[in-house]
């Protein structure tokens, strides 16, 4: 073995230690994945960089995914960490077109967490699992010293079956594809902020946290030619679009005026200096569908309770691969870039 081959394969990152922004769903997180994780574990499943990986097992295909849930506060308007832990993983499976079936669940509990809180969280997980038709079939529990966890951290992994003929992944996105969202944006992020910062608004805003599996199943049953799906979590719509644009090497053009935002969310964002396109959601997806199926997809989504606010927001282009542009309200154009980390409230 040559000396070169023995040297550390991991390039030094510019940050000597992990920053919060490395988990913010933006550019720093993408770089962390590209510099540290992808080179270490390189394989075809990982290379697709989808929300869930689709794997052949015998003649069948299953989707497999995992996600960890760290949220403060644990309970917020419209949901809690337990619901998130079930819906989030179920949604990642659904984004590969899979029918979610089984979840694992790892609890990391902080010494001193009130037992009543844990019971509430578990009851809410049970309800979310029953609603989405998944079973929590294996689990693990660890307890850490007081001060070494934020009450409770939950990890769930999930598998689901992918029906023959279903092929939903970033690299299938084509110029001309229609870009659709399943509903209005930013509710989860604003609901969390309102509790965390003690901000109260005239219209209380509840998180959108919910399962997208039923919506995706309905789209597939209706025969919509779906090329790619992404659930809009941290980093919001803008980050999801940028990821797909980079991974599929296409351009994406959206119309600001078409992007649905509830008035109360828009008002809260205006006040806090945030752009709703970068605010987190927990029950919304963006779909890339064949152009001749755009109208069908919107009407099918609108017929489902989870997609009532569905609308077309833009198209995929062959120009400017990797770049997302936004036609503003007034007809000007701007780039909708990936942020470095999380959005920060502005001074002015």
């Amino acid at each position: 073995m040559s000396l070169d081959a023995m040297s550390c394969p991991l390039p030094l990152s510019e940050h000597a230690s992990v920053q919060l922004a490395h988990g913010g769903g933006g550019r720093l997180m993408r770089r962390l994945i590209e510099d540290i994780f992808l080179p270490a574990f390189s394989n075809p499943g990982l290379a697709e960089r989808h929300d869930a990986t689709v794997l052949p097992i015998g003649p069948e295909r299953i989707a497999f995914t995992t996600d960890s849930y760290v949220v403060s506060p644990l309970f917020f308007p419209g949901g809690d960490i337990g619901k998130l832990a079930v819906y989030g993983t179920v949604n990642d499976l659904a984004m590969a077109g899979a029918r979610p079936a089984y979840l694992s669940c790892g609890f990391i509990l902080e010494e001193g967490l009130p037992m009543t809180d844990l019971e509430r969280i578990v009851a809410s997980m049970r309800q979310a699992a029953a609603e989405t038709g998944v079973q929590l079939v294996t689990g693990d529990t660890k307890v850490v010293d007081r001060g070494k966890g934020d009450g409770i951290f939950i990890n769930t992994a999930g598998i689901g079956r992918v029906e023959p003929g279903v092929d939903i992944r970033p690299s299938r996105v084509r110029p001309g594809d229609a870009v659709l969202v399943s509903g209005d944006l930013g509710r989860h992020g604003v609901a969390i902020l309102s509790v965390r910062e003690g901000l109260s608004f005239e219209t209380p805003i509840a998180s959108d946290c919910g399962s997208l599996a039923g919506l995706v199943a309905t789209l597939l049953e209706a025969g919509v030619e779906i090329h790619c799906l992404r659930d809009l979590t941290r980093g919001g719509l803008a980050s999801a679009l940028n990821e797909v644009a980079m991974d599929a090497r296409v351009g994406i053009e959206v119309q600001q005026v078409q992007i649905p935002v509830h008035e109360a969310v828009a008002g809260a964002c205006e006040l806090l200096g945030l752009d709703p396109c970068y605010v987190a959601n927990e029950g919304r997806l963006v779909a890339f569908v064949a152009p001749h199926h755009a109208e069908l997809a919107v009407s099918v989504m609108r017929g489902h309770p989870q997609g009532e606010g569905a609308t077309a927001i833009g198209t995929v282009t062959a120009t400017d691969p990797g770049v997302v542009t936004n036609q503003t309200w007034l007809g000007g154009k701007r780039l909708m870039d990936l942020l470095s980390g999380e959005q920060l409230p502005r001074i002015c």
């Binding site: 752009d275 036609q327 503003t328 309200w329 007034l330 007809g331 000007g332 154009k333 701007r334 502005r346 002015c348």
Partner: peptide, 17 residues
Amino acid sequence: ICGGQTHAIVRYGLQDL
């Protein structure tokens, strides 16, 4: 002068108009 105005100019693409 103000960064808030710059923000609005970029956000609404005013230069293009």
